[in-house]
Design a protein around this nucleic acid. Structure first.
Lengths: 132, 132
DNA sequence: TCGTGGGTTAGAATGAATCTAATCCTATCG
DNA sequence: CGATAGGATTAGATTCATTCTAACCCACGA
């Protein structure tokens, strides 16, 4: 179910440029991914134009703003960018330093924290941290 | 239910020193806290010896290792140190940049992610991110 | 052809956290 | 009581991820 990078950008209202096309092409190749900036850099290195770090960050942040990807941060280390945008949770495999998705249907959460009135829940982040 | 800082350190097997005593005194004053390094620094500034940043980090990390506090990181920003060590979850109030605890009893999670055999769940982190 | 403005860039700057090597204490031993 | 060994503390440098800045490039329209 692969849609062309160009049309993905177009429907997100983002001008297609070399970097954005190359990054979208890598990210949206049909396999959902969790990539770090370094991994994305490596992947683009194998393509035509290797972008500067700054534009890679710019482009990833644009994609986030457009809702094409999501940023996931755990610990204080480098951020992950997740190509799955619908609500879901994560398993972090400490030994492999790898993120894995958990569909929302796999867990059921009953109960809600008490919140001040008028508050809205922006997101619910769940991470199972596992090791061997 | 306030226990003296000295006896807390002693039962954790940590030598009592000026900084460690001052920090423990501030952290374990009976009110559970979520503090950043900067807040801890501010608090210690009002006491006898203002420690260097390095030893504050050292001391907070020692306390973590000893199980006296827990580190919580969200986004890429500065870490929080949480004086509540038993399992619990968090609400993050984005508008106030404030963490709040949710007791485990307030939520029920049914279902577990599929894990490779032999894996153990180190922790389950849940953060409700809320805004006004 | 000349601007205009967005895209891209290298390199500097920022902020959190850690590392290093020197110095300070302090408990213990002679 | 004085020497000393080893942990505690320190200032400052260092690392790492990320963002900022100011210049440059380039496609497109007047």
């Amino acid at each position: 179910m692969r849609t062309g990078a160009a049309s993905i950008l177009e429907s997100a209202g983002i001008q297609p440029t070399r970097i954005r096309l190359a990054l979208a092409d890598y990210l949206f190749d049909g396999e959902h991914k969790h990539v770090t900036v370094q991994e994305a850099l490596e992947a683009l290195k194998r393509k035509r134009h290797l972008p500067s770090l700054a534009s890679l960050y710019n482009t990833l942040n644009e994609f986030c703003r457009a809702g094409l990807i999501r940023k996931v941060t755990l610990d204080g280390g480098a951020a992950w960018f997740d190509t799955r945008t619908e609500p879901h949770y994560h398993v972090f495999h400490e030994d492999e330093c790898r993120l894995e998705d958990i569909p929302v249907a796999a867990l059921k959460i009953t109960g809600r924290p008490k919140l001040p009135k008028g508050s809205i829940v922006r997101s619910v982040e769940i991470v199972f941290r596992v090791a061997k």
